[in-house]
């Protein structure tokens, strides 16, 4: 086995490096989709690489290592034992992180869903903390909005229309699925954590654009987002997007600019990464099959 099996472990990097630039321009929806699909494929490929590397430990199993005593039957030893061992450990760690993330998400949604009566589309919680959550539904019941009295009192009637339109956009477009898929990819391959953060940001931008189109006023939408964010000032940010201010600042800035036009060219990088990934993984798998034949 040559370098092909190691490549997918690093190929996530071009995606990580370009994610922010992809998010900066164009419509947020297409970028969110492209980055999520690319991240999921990147994570699947790097996991498959780890599986192949870990499987080379099989040559240490008694029936195979017994063959080592026959000098005439020299077995190929393509991957050094320690590397295979590290691959196995990384695989286990990734699996554990994935499990933790999925369980955390499902439990949080389940507990938040339990707050509303079935069929209720809007629930108010009497809390001073300004919060609004789009609680995703299930196959049997639609999602609902959960808002605190803190945020209702903070915004005026027009700004509340922005808020409701924004949260409804999250529900109607099933944004939680994209975010969960990107998070699963980042759990398996931590190099993809910046991509997960970018997808979470893009989903907010997407709902902002939907809300702006719905209320027909970008400046009003910007004002609502800014006022809601300012009310939380002083508390540490949950996600930092780095350069040029945090996510809230970038959302407001994007809304004060004209509505974005689709720019398909910026999606070339994630698509290219996907194609290269699939090619490399095919080569690595072919090599592994050849190796397994030599062993047996």
């Amino acid at each position: 086995m040559t370098f092909a099996v190691y490549l997918p472990l690093l190929l996530a990097l071009p995606l990580t490096v370009t994610a922010r630039r992809i998010a900066a321009r164009g419509t947020p929806g297409s970028a969110a989709w492209a980055l999520t699909v690319a991240a999921v494929i990147a994570a699947a490929c790097s996991t498959w690489s780890l599986i192949l590397l870990a499987l080379t430990m099989l040559d240490d199993l008694p029936p195979l290592s017994a063959l080592d005593d026959h000098p005439t039957l020299e077995l190929p030893e393509p991957v050094p034992g320690p590397i295979a061992l590290v691959a196995g450990l990384l695989l286990l760690a990734g699996g554990a992180r994935l499990l933790t993330d999925v369980r955390l998400r499902l439990a949080t949604y389940r507990d938040l869903r339990a707050i509303s009566e079935p069929g209720e589309r809007f629930v108010v919680a009497d809390l001073a903390t300004p919060m609004a959550v789009a609680v995703p539904g299930t196959a049997r019941r639609p999602g609902h909005l959960l808002v605190t009295t803190g945020i209702l009192r903070l915004l005026d009637a027009d700004e509340r229309r922005v808020l409701f339109a924004h949260e409804r956009a999250h529900l109607d477009r099933h944004h939680h699925r994209l975010v969960a898929a990107a998070a699963a990819a980042a759990a398996l391959n931590p190099l993809l954590i910046p991509v997960r953060e970018t997808v979470a940001y893009l989903v907010e931008r997407w709902a902002d654009e939907d809300a702006a189109a719905d209320v027909g006023d970008r400046a009003l939408t910007a004002k609502a987002v800014a006022r809601a964010a300012l009310a939380t000032a002083g508390t540490p940010p949950l996600t930092a997007l780095g350069i040029g201010g945090g996510a809230a600042v970038q959302r407001v800035r994007a809304l004060t600019a004209p509505a974005p036009a689709p720019r398909r060219r910026r999606l070339v990088v994630p698509m290219l990464v996907v194609v290269v990934f699939l090619a490399v993984v095919t080569v690595a798998t072919g090599e592994f099959i050849a190796l397994a034949r030599a062993w047996l």
């Binding site: 964010a229 000032a233 940010p237 809230a248």
Partner: peptide, 30 residues
């Protein structure tokens, strides 16, 4: 771990520098 982290937030937390930036942006919009 913090369960709020898995949710999408309309009201996004921000630090002091960002708050300053936002106030400026808000003034611009007005």
């Amino acid at each position: 771990p913090d369960r709020r982290a898995v949710l999408q937030h309309f009201a996004q937390a921000l630090d002091d520098a960002d708050a300053e930036l936002l106030r400026d942006l808000l003034a611009g919009t007005e």
